[in-house]
C-alpha cells in the first residue's frame, strides 16, 4: 500500500500557528511590562518616548499640512457668512471694554500703592511663551496634546499652559522641540483650586469628560452654579488665580466644572514661565537631592 506523500506546507502550518501564538504571548507580556515601566516613569523608557516624539513630530506635521489647510478653508468660509453680525457684536464689545479699561487702570494704580504701603511680597513676574498645538488626542483613553515648544524654547516640566482665557493643562513631558501637555480634563489631572469669591479650596480632578469634578469641598461651603474657579497656588506647582472655568452643575454626589477653554478651536496656547516650575523640574529630575 502506497503511503501518502507528506507535503512541506502541512508540516510548516502548525509550526507557523505555534510561532504566532508564542509571538502574541511575548508581545502581550512585553507591552504590559512597557506599560508598567512607563507608568512607573522608568528613566530610559521616558528617554525613548521623548526621542521618538522628536523624531515623529516633523513627519506628522508634514502630513497634517494639507488637512489643516482644508479645515482652515472650511472654517474661513463658515465665518465669512457671519462676518456682518460679528462686526456689529465686536463694535459693542469694544465700547464696553473701553469703559472697563478706564476703571481697571484706576484700580491697578490703587492696588500698586496699597502693595507699597503694606510691603506686600508679590509672586515673581511671569514670562509668556506662545506656541501651537501639534497633535490633540480625541479618544476616551487620554486627554493630552503635543505643542511645538520644547526645551530649546524654554519649556519645562510643571509649567502651566493657557488658552486666551483659561488653563489648558500642565506640561508633563519636555522633548527638544516639543512638549506634552496633560489637559485639566484628563483622568490623571488633579489641580488645587479655589472659588474666586468665597475662596473655598478644592481639588479639581479630570475624568476624561469635558466637565472635571471638584473634590474635597469644605462641608460648610456656599458654592453655587456659575461661581468662577481659579487655581489656588497651593502645592507650589501653579501660580494662584489662573482662571479655569465656572461651576456648571451641582448634584447630590458631585460638582462639575465647565472650562473656559474652547477645546474645539484650540490652536494657539501660551506657556506661563514662572519660578515654581524650575523647582519642580529639579525635583523630578533629581528627587533625592
Amino acid at each position: 500500500m502506497a503511503r501518502k506523500p507528506v507535503l512541506f506546507s502541512s508540516l510548516v502550518k502548525p509550526i507557523k500557528a505555534w510561532w504566532q501564538r508564542i509571538f502574541f504571548s511575548v508581545g502581550i507580556v512585553a507591552c504590559t511590562l512597557f506599560l508598567l515601566m512607563d507608568r512607573g516613569e522608568v528613566g530610559y523608557v521616558r528617554e525613548i518616548r521623548l526621542s521618538l516624539t522628536d523624531a515623529l513630530m516633523p513627519i506628522t506635521q508634514t502630513i497634517f499640512h494639507p488637512i489643516k489647510s482644508f479645515s482652515k478653508f472650511v472654517d474661513d468660509f463658515k465665518s465669512l457668512s457671519q462676518a456682518h453680525e460679528k462686526v456689529r457684536v465686536l463694535g459693542v464689545q469694544v465700547r464696553e471694554l473701553q469703559a472697563e479699561l478706564i476703571m481697571t487702570r484706576g484700580l491697578l494704580t490703587q492696588n500698586k500703592r496699597l502693595k507699597e504701603q503694606t510691603n506686600f511680597v508679590d509672586f515673581p513676574d511671569t514670562r509668556i511663551i506662545t506656541g501651537r498645538v501639534v497633535t490633540h488626542s480625541g479618544g476616551p483613553f487620554v486627554k493630552s496634546m503635543l505643542i511645538n515648544i520644547g526645551q530649546n524654547n524654554g519649556a519645562r516640566l510643571g509649567q502651566a499652559v493657557m488658552s486666551e482665557f483659561g488653563l489648558v493643562g500642565i506640561i508633563v513631558e519636555v522633548a527638544t522641540s516639543f512638549s506634552r501637555v496633560l489637559q485639566i480634563t484628563d483622568i490623571n489631572s488633579q489641580i488645587p483650586v479655589v472659588t474666586e469669591n468665597t475662596r473655598d479650596p478644592a481639588i479639581m480632578a479630570g475624568d476624561n469628560t469635558k466637565f472635571p469634578k471638584l473634590k474635597f469641598i469644605p462641608s460648610d461651603s456656599l458654592i453655587a452654579v456659575g461661581d468662577r474657579i481659579v487655581t489656588s497656588g497651593h502645592g507650589g506647582v501653579l501660580p494662584p488665580d489662573i482662571p479655569i472655568g465656572h461651576i456648571a452643575e451641582i448634584n447630590a454626589t458631585s460638582v462639575h466644572v465647565s472650562s473656559l477653554v474652547d477645546w474645539d478651536r484650540l490652536d494657539y496656547i501660551r506657556i506661563l514661565d514662572y519660578r515654581f516650575a524650575d523647582n519642580l523640574s529639579q525635583y523630578l529630575n533629581n528627587p533625592l537631592d
Binding site: 507591552c31 504590559t32 506599560l35 488626542s137 479618544g139 487620554v142 496633560l182
Partner: peptide, 23 residues
Amino acid sequence: IILGIISDILTGASLGFTPILFL
C-alpha cells in the same frame, strides 16, 4: 506592536497600551 507604540506616542497614552488592544 510598532504601530501601536507610534499611536501611543501620538496620543500620549502609556507606551504599550494600544499594542495590547491591537494584539
